Computed example of a mutant assay.
Amino acid sequence: MSDAKISEFDRATALRRRQPGVHDALLDEGWAVGHAVNGGYLLSILARALGADLPHPDPFTISAHYLTASLPGPATVRTELARAGRTLATGSASLWQTDDTGTEVERVRVLATYGELDQLTEDVRTSAKPPHFPPPQECFSPRDNPAGSAANPAMTDRLDLRLDSATVGWALGEPSGSGEMRAWFSFADGRDADALSLLTTVDALPPAAFELGVTGWLPTVELTAHVRARPAPGPLRVALSTRNMAGGFLEEDCEVWDSEDRLVAQARQLARPR
């Protein structure tokens, strides 16, 4: 496949195996939010390394602790197998970068369990319901930002986000107080979603806390994502909510629904407003 046919996401999460359990990565500045690269994007990179090294290909659950801010540039991912079974395998991975003093610094550490999504039973019993909001053409995109497109994070240029107008009061200086954010999610270059990219999707929207009136940078302390199914082609619907900010920390829950109304991913993260 020529580079022209490789999606921007796949190029930005590509790895080069240096030796067993060690991969070289290049963190792309196009996936930055402010000075640091996005936590969901980092999670996809670490998950790609684990998928290459574990005996099962698909992330079922992955928990990341963000130790220091990851910056655009070279990085090293190291993986370790903890246990391999017939249907599930568990491993850990860490992402490292060299700082200005030449010291290697650990940025992210994850623990994950992998399996094979195509072998899951089709039996679904759920009380969860997909979010309902206007179609994409009636929602707001980052290009509608009153502050101008230059005020948007670099990452938004890689995506086609369409935000539910009921959850963008914060952009007009009038947060609703609901603590909710909803949007349609697609890649700008038309790439379909898969299990790996869902790990970016769960951390791609503006924080739901913006609708609580919280402003500024909200770095993630810990993020756990569950991949429930391989998504069908087409745009995804993402719903975020946060109910409690206390002691200088807040939680954010995420649901991702595909074009066939299936809940394909869930996540919860703990963030610390700055």
Rank of each mutant, 00 (worst) to 15 (best):
residue 205 L to W: 08
residue 142 P to M: 02
residue 252 E to G: 03
residue 97 Q to G: 08
residue 205 L to I: 10
residue 32 A to R: 14
residue 203 D to L: 00
residue 15 L to P: 11
residue 110 V to N: 03
residue 113 T to Q: 06
residue 90 T to V: 15
residue 34 G to I: 09
residue 121 T to F: 00
residue 248 G to C: 09
residue 151 A to Q: 10
residue 46 L to A: 10
residue 181 M to P: 02
residue 46 L to M: 15
residue 268 R to M: 08
residue 216 G to T: 14
residue 14 A to Q: 10
residue 92 S to P: 00
residue 221 V to H: 04
residue 54 L to Y: 10
residue 151 A to L: 02
residue 186 S to W: 00
residue 82 A to K: 12
residue 162 R to I: 01
residue 213 G to L: 11
residue 133 F to V: 13
residue 103 T to S: 09
residue 69 A to M: 11
residue 229 A to F: 05
residue 258 D to M: 05
residue 267 A to P: 11
residue 226 H to T: 07
residue 113 T to W: 00
residue 20 P to F: 01
residue 26 L to N: 13
residue 9 F to V: 04
residue 61 T to M: 06
residue 149 S to E: 15
residue 163 L to Q: 07
residue 59 P to L: 02
residue 143 R to Y: 12
residue 251 E to L: 01
residue 220 T to R: 02
residue 153 P to V: 06
residue 150 A to G: 06
residue 43 L to E: 08
residue 38 N to P: 03
residue 67 L to P: 05
residue 144 D to V: 01
residue 178 S to M: 03
residue 140 F to G: 00
residue 211 E to R: 00
residue 174 E to C: 02
residue 3 D to I: 09
residue 249 F to R: 14
residue 252 E to D: 06
residue 255 E to M: 01
residue 201 T to P: 01
residue 115 G to D: 14
residue 129 K to Q: 15
residue 133 F to L: 08
residue 69 A to C: 02
residue 193 A to C: 09
residue 260 E to D: 15
residue 117 L to N: 09
residue 132 H to L: 06
residue 7 S to H: 06
residue 124 V to F: 03
residue 218 L to H: 10
residue 131 P to S: 07
residue 141 S to H: 14
residue 82 A to N: 14
residue 235 P to L: 02
residue 31 W to I: 05
residue 201 T to Q: 05
residue 271 A to I: 10
residue 38 N to T: 03
residue 69 A to P: 15
residue 19 Q to P: 01
residue 201 T to N: 01
residue 50 L to K: 02
residue 13 T to E: 04
residue 47 A to V: 03
residue 2 S to A: 04
residue 118 D to H: 10
residue 56 H to G: 11
residue 274 R to H: 07
residue 186 S to A: 12
residue 215 T to Y: 10
residue 67 L to H: 03
residue 79 T to P: 13
residue 65 H to E: 13
residue 97 Q to I: 07
residue 190 G to I: 06
residue 178 S to G: 10
residue 227 V to C: 02
residue 76 T to H: 00
residue 237 R to V: 07
residue 83 R to P: 04
residue 19 Q to Y: 03
residue 234 G to Q: 08
residue 39 G to I: 01
residue 63 S to H: 08
residue 178 S to I: 03
residue 220 T to P: 11
residue 209 A to M: 11
residue 139 C to Q: 09
residue 179 G to H: 08
residue 62 I to H: 04
residue 152 N to I: 00
residue 254 C to M: 12
residue 98 T to R: 13
residue 34 G to R: 05
residue 61 T to P: 01
residue 261 D to A: 13
residue 29 E to C: 09
residue 168 V to G: 00
residue 10 D to R: 05
